[in-house]
Design a protein around this nucleic acid. Structure first.
Lengths: 153, 153
DNA sequence: CTGTGTGCAAACATTTTGCAAGCAG
DNA sequence: CTGCTTGCAAAATGTTTGCACACAG
């Protein structure tokens, strides 16, 4: 499978429909609305944020937050989305199955920058090997102040 | 200040008392019980786990989980403890102010192995610089299967 | 004594679950 | 039609707060 982030929306939608069919699940308007909202806003969402945005964009669907949670979990189980745990509480989700990218998080304004670094990947593999671990995933988050917020003070 | 993890318990206790005094706070039996339990069990605790262990070791103090939370937050604010956010929910705490160490986490048995790697630190600084970030902290967690759990299958 | 600390219960915040009605296939 | 899906309300977690009493300094 291609990386999710390089798919057009139609390709993504097809992938999603295939997953649903394979699992005997149904394609519904709410599920599509959530997928599309994630696709069109390449940010990191809390379930709450996403819920509000979906309600705003598709008010007639009257989507419940329960459905947002259920859909996000469904997407994550099928590798169409990824969740991140942050400092204090809550989770954030992003569309895509990006095994090799990490996050820089501004502690002042909350901005999240994604980055990739192959050398980090290589080092992680070495470390895992050193401890007899078979790696399945990793999480790296760098916290600090972004350029803007450094200047504010 | 020396690294927390190299302190004897008495030194740690003195550090804690100094912090309390400096902040006009009081040294209580519950706070000591929690600190001592953390010191004697160099593991990663959820507040719940720690609460149960403290209750078991010091049943007469009748420590409440509220106090455990409050004490952990107090320790964290004063850099005597660090908390980690994990996958789904909850936090884990560990004693110590260890700015430069990270975790390997077994997804099967939950075991946590700590490691340090200077090269990773160096790379992180480079990445931050590349994005004009001023780093204050970082979190790196590698998920996988430990040796034992690989063999189980 | 004074004011901080404590445990309890209640409040909160986030996420999950039970259920009856709705709708996709 | 069948049974998966939905929204709602309620439950389940994990964490914080209000309060009256306890106790450290």
């Amino acid at each position: 499978m291609k990386d999710i982030e390089s798919l057009t929306y139609d390709e993504l939608l097809e992938t999603f429909k295939t997953i649903l069919k394979t699992n005997g699940l149904k394609f519904t308007a709410q599920r599509e609305a959530i997928l599309k909202t994630l696709y069109e806003n390449p940010d990191h969402f809390t379930p709450e944020n996403l819920y509000l945005l979906v309600k705003e964009k598709y008010p007639n669907l009257n989507t419940g937050i329960t459905t947002v949670y259920r859909t996000l979990n469904l997407l994550e189980e099928n590798k169409l989305a990824t969740s991140l745990s942050f400092g204090s509480q809550g989770k954030k989700f992003e569309l895509g199955n990006k095994p090799h990218h990490d996050h820089l998080i501004c502690e002042s304004c909350g901005k999240i920058i994604e980055f990739e670094d192959e050398q980090i990947e290589i080092l992680q593999d070495k470390i895992a090997k050193r401890h007899d671990f078979k790696l399945t995933d990793h999480l790296m988050q760098l916290y600090g102040l972004c350029k803007n917020c450094q200047n504010k003070n």
